[in-house]
Simulated scan of single mutants.
Amino acid sequence: MSVSLYYSAHRAEPPTAAESAEIARVNAAHQDSFPYQDQESLFLHDDPAPGELPAGFTKMLGDPERMLSVLVHVLDSLTELRRALPGAEWRVHLDDLDVPWDEDEGYAIPGMRDPGLAAELGGP
């Protein structure tokens, strides 16, 4: 059974040139720093629907040793994207579970930065 992280942003006005450049920068930085070549990563649709800004999904592999690391990496990039697009309405969810937004921390699932949990799962 696979789990996927889905994300989308909506706003009446399209991204400005500066916002589009920031979206491209965040996406490129994410791809450059992503640690797994054989795992799906941040995936933004090339042609979003009208009124949709970045949107996409990441399919999580069933490997618990990687899942937490991948989730942290993708959610950190989504946090950067949300902060780059003021006024957008975001929806981020792991299958049917909404991922909460916190102004200070950004997108996070409770416990995802717990070093004990990461060590237990075999992560860094």
Score class of each variant (00 low, 15 high):
Ala119Asn: 09
Gln31Lys: 14
Arg82Leu: 03
Ala55Ile: 00
Pro15Val: 02
Arg66Tyr: 02
Pro110Val: 01
Leu71Glu: 12
Val3Met: 14
Phe34Asn: 04
Leu61Tyr: 01
Gly56Val: 02
His93Lys: 15
Pro15Asp: 02
Asp102Met: 04
Val99Thr: 09
Gly123Asp: 15
His45Tyr: 05
Asp98Pro: 14
Leu61Ser: 14
Gly62Asn: 12
Glu22Tyr: 03
Thr79Val: 06
Ser69Gly: 14
Pro124Gly: 13
Pro35Ser: 09
Asp114Ser: 14
Asp32Trp: 01
Tyr7Trp: 14
Asp102Cys: 04
Asp95Val: 01
Ser41His: 06
Ile23Arg: 09
Tyr7Gly: 13
Leu68Arg: 08
Pro100Leu: 06
Leu81Val: 05
Gln39Thr: 03
Leu42Arg: 02
Ser41Phe: 01
Ala29His: 08
Ala9Cys: 08
Glu13Cys: 05
Leu97Phe: 13
Arg82His: 13
Phe43Ile: 00
Asp114Glu: 13
Ala49Cys: 04
Glu89Thr: 11
Ala108Pro: 01
Glu105Ile: 05
Gly62Gln: 07
Val92Met: 11
Arg82Asp: 02
Val26Tyr: 04
Asp102Lys: 07
Leu71Ala: 12
His10Arg: 15
Gly123Lys: 10
His45Ala: 07
Ala84Met: 06
Asp38Ser: 12
Glu19Trp: 02
Leu97Cys: 06
Ser33Trp: 00
Ser41Asp: 11
Val99Gln: 09
Thr58Asn: 13
Glu80Arg: 15
Asp102His: 12
Ser8Glu: 15
Asp38Pro: 03
Ser8Thr: 09
Gly87His: 07
Leu94Ile: 01
Ala24Gln: 12
Ala21His: 04
Pro14Asp: 14
Asp96Trp: 09
Ser4Lys: 10
Asp63Trp: 01
Ser20Leu: 14
Asp76Ser: 08
Ser8Tyr: 03
Ala28Met: 03
Pro115Val: 05
Pro100Met: 04
His45Asp: 09
Asp95Lys: 09
Trp90Phe: 10
Glu105Thr: 09
Asp102Phe: 00
Phe43Ser: 13
Arg66Ile: 03
Asp98Val: 10
Val92Gly: 09
Glu103Gln: 08
Leu53Pro: 02
Pro14Glu: 15
Pro15Leu: 06
Leu53Thr: 02
Ala55Phe: 00
His10Trp: 08
Phe34Asp: 04
Leu81Trp: 05
Leu97Tyr: 12
Gln31Phe: 02
Asp96Met: 10
Thr79Ala: 07
Gly106Leu: 06
Gly123Arg: 14
Ala118Cys: 07
Gly56Thr: 03
Arg113Asp: 11
Asp46Val: 01
Asp63Arg: 12
Leu81Thr: 06
His73Arg: 07
Met112Ile: 11
Gly106Asn: 06
Val70Lys: 02
Phe34Ala: 04
Ala29Tyr: 00
Phe34Thr: 01
Arg83Gln: 13
Pro86Asp: 07
Val72Ile: 13
Phe57Lys: 13
Ala17Glu: 15
Asp63Glu: 14
Pro110Gly: 03
Met1Val: 05
Glu65Pro: 00
Ala55Trp: 00
Ala88Gln: 08
Arg82Pro: 01
Val72Ala: 13
Asn27Cys: 06
Phe43Asp: 11
Asp114Ala: 09
Leu75Tyr: 03
Met1Ala: 14
Gln39Phe: 06
Val99Tyr: 07
Thr16Pro: 07
Val26Ala: 07
Ala108Ile: 00
Met60Asp: 01
Asp95Gly: 09
